[in-house]
Amino acid sequence: MVWLVHLNGTWRSDPTAGMNPNPQTHTLPRTILTRIAPMTPSQTQRPNPLHLLAAFASGGLLTLAIFVNGEAGRLGGALFSSWLAHGVGTVVAVAVLALIWRRERAATKIAEAQHGKAPLWAYLGGIFGAVTVMLTSTAVNSPLALAGTLALGLAGQVVLSLAADYWGLLGLARRRLDLRDAGAVILIAGGSLLIILFGFGSA
């Protein structure tokens, strides 16, 4: 449980402070907290523009990954493509972790002191990714085709992320949603649907 939020340079108590099972973490140096504390977005905090920019850039990475994995799928099938990506990903992650292991282990100790050990289910995010591949390859090869699959997938993403923020699902912070979020959802989802349904291919 995060008990501090960094707001405009000042530290304020989080309403959930009393629920912190590890009061000794209060004495952690501020620099460490700043680095590892997941800046729980409070109701009034504006998202850091750099974080939003990073998210936007990671969407570009996703485009690239989907193109590469799509080619692998075209040559060897959807299951092979995803299996290959997860296999290569595992090797790369191990290599990166081996290089920075000292730092990662220290960061994990601090994170566990603050949030407790990860629940068992938190290890299983990869299952959903694996199942996703099977679902999308089913949908793509139906009358929905690629555009329909992408459009409906987008709807699914928006619906679950709204629910996740509203209820603070699966141990992550709850975020209050307001009209601005609704506007952003409508504009970004609308623009994306326009590109998915009419932008691909020549009219």
């Binding site: 936007f56 992320s161 992550l172 975020r175 998915i196």
Partner: peptide, 18 residues
């Protein structure tokens, strides 16, 4: 863990599309 689920979803989709 920093910008929440909705913002992550929207910005990643935005980047993916653009």
């Amino acid at each position: 863990t920093r910008i929440g689920a909705v913002n992550s979803t929207l910005l990643v989709i935005a980047g993916q599309m653009v």
